[in-house]
Design a protein around this nucleic acid. Structure first.
Lengths: 277, 277
DNA sequence: TCGCCGGCGTAACGTTTGATACGTTTTCTG
DNA sequence: CAGAAAACGTATCAAACGTTACGCCGGCGA
């Protein structure tokens, strides 16, 4: 059982015609990039003709060249997504199953912030700091808690922040009051929820500014969003980790706090006073 | 001086038209694979039209799409050859105020898991995996979302999991049904909430097993808790970061998932079926 | 030596692709 | 609020692409 396409090729290298073997070796020589180029270029660089390439691909069991390229693409994408799978299981043995998950999360977080720029965050922070704006937050099945968390913090710092509670049909009532000056922050990761998409679509139609926090595969809501932040979510487990999204949310909170220092301090004091009673 | 194309894009993200920016964000979200596909697919996945993609490419300084793809290809080839020379933390200085917060969070997480032992987590996981137990989760003002998040996941894996909604006085009604076979998971960080303390005290009096997730200063609930996990929360900001707690919660979820593989798989399938209707 | 067969490249076909011109819509600006 | 400029999608075209049919070439057996 060959795990990668490269191995499959090497295995079957012996029972191949001469030119096909040359092509296969050329592919392995700079794998997998050569296979992602056009047939003509592949052929030229291997010193054979185009049909030979196609015959090779057919011999490997692919219906056509596109299918072959897709396979290479998937393999490559998987490899890029989890760079630590190559780096090796540094600490995996010691803690028995806990550490790989942790390091995957840490990796996700670093990778997320390698991709998300401070400028991007800054723009969203500016939006969320605008006192004339009203802010509504909502999330999906697993991400709604993050929306709530963000709401809890922002609501302290500034007025006009609310979480969209309840069921979908209750959202509609809230939509009526939304307009150009409203901001809708949506958290949505796989499997993307239709209800959120509908909400975003309607909000967009009403001129609401939409901020989307999603995973690297991008929720379809991206279509309607003015701002999109994508966090990495894949971990070696049956489910996806929202840790990176959580930390993104905390960065937004931190940004708004920093931007509205007086308000937040005043409101915190005020709320502390209220609580003491 | 941007070393990678991704950075170039992120830098120039602000002075781009809206749709081009969306396209650019989509590219960065799953970089660089999306850029290696055809213009049409790129466009569709970004939710824009083909010409927008081409305009984006032109704006980035490439003569045509092929040249752009070549650049991505070269970069990818270079990355594949030396996996260690990952673009890395090149930006920590440049981004100013963001990085310190991020590194503080990462530091908190590492430190938390240096202190919390796998055995500790394992015991709690075993408790939460016991099918005869009923599990109730609750949190404070800022940590309740984490309780909700944990609930959302555990409820999929096994039956008998519920979040304590509503106000403090509603909790009393739920307390009546709790007994020795119940587990109460409490999230509580500074400033510790009296309401949670009262709840824990009463639950403890009824023989409920209490699991406490708190900060390094330990909530007073620790007095009643059978299990205590402390996460680091301090960051250079006006508030505390719950990121470490969130990741602790995800580790508990992962542990239970791993321990109840059949149940979780079966329940996930079942719920998927229910949702499809 | 002749005939057969797999290996291989040439050439032509139909499709898909990147690219461009144009009209509509939106967004600045005075 | 009018006018201009920019942004964006639709429609269209030519070039490049993958694919297939066909015929040549060399090796092996009769």
């Amino acid at each position: 059982m060959a795990s990668s396409i490269a191995e499959t090729i090497t295995d079957r290298l012996t029972d191949m015609p001469a030119r096909e073997r040359r092509a296969a070796q050329a592919l392995i020589a700079n794998y997998p990039m050569l296979g992602l180029k056009t047939v003509a270029e592949f052929a030229q660089r291997a010193g054979v003709s185009s049909p030979t390439i196609l015959r090779l691909v057919a011999r490997l069991g692919y219906q056509n060249y596109a299918e072959f390229q897709s396979a290479l693409n998937d393999e490559l994408a998987a490899r890029l997504q989890s760079p630590l799978s190559r780096t090796g299981r540094a600490r995996s043995n010691r803690d028995g199953g806990v550490a790989p998950l942790l390091s995957a999360m840490l990796e996700n977080i670093s990778e997320t912030f390698r991709v998300v720029s401070a400028k991007q965050l800054g723009e969203i922070v500016a939006l969320l700091s605008d006192p004339r704006r009203r802010i509504h937050l909502v999330g999906g099945r697993f991400t709604d808690p993050i929306a709530r968390y963000t709401t809890a913090h922002l609501a302290i710092i500034r007025p006009g922040v609310a979480h969209l509670d309840g069921q979908e049909n209750q959202w509609r009532d809230r939509l009526i009051d939304m307009g150009r000056r409203d901001v809708l922050v949506v958290f949505d990761i796989r499997r993307y929820q239709d209800s959120l998409l509908h909400l975003a679509e309607k909000a967009n139609a009403r001129g609401v500014t939409i901020v989307l926090v999603t995973d690297q595969w991008l929720s379809p809501i991206a279509r309607f969003a003015s701002y999109v932040i994508a966090g990495r979510t894949s971990v070696p487990s049956a489910w996806d980790s929202s840790a990176a999204l959580f930390i993104l949310a905390e960065h937004l909170i931190a940004g708004v706090t920093e931007r509205l220092p007086e308000q937040s301090a005043a409101r915190i004091r005020e709320m502390d006073a209220l609580r003491r009673e």
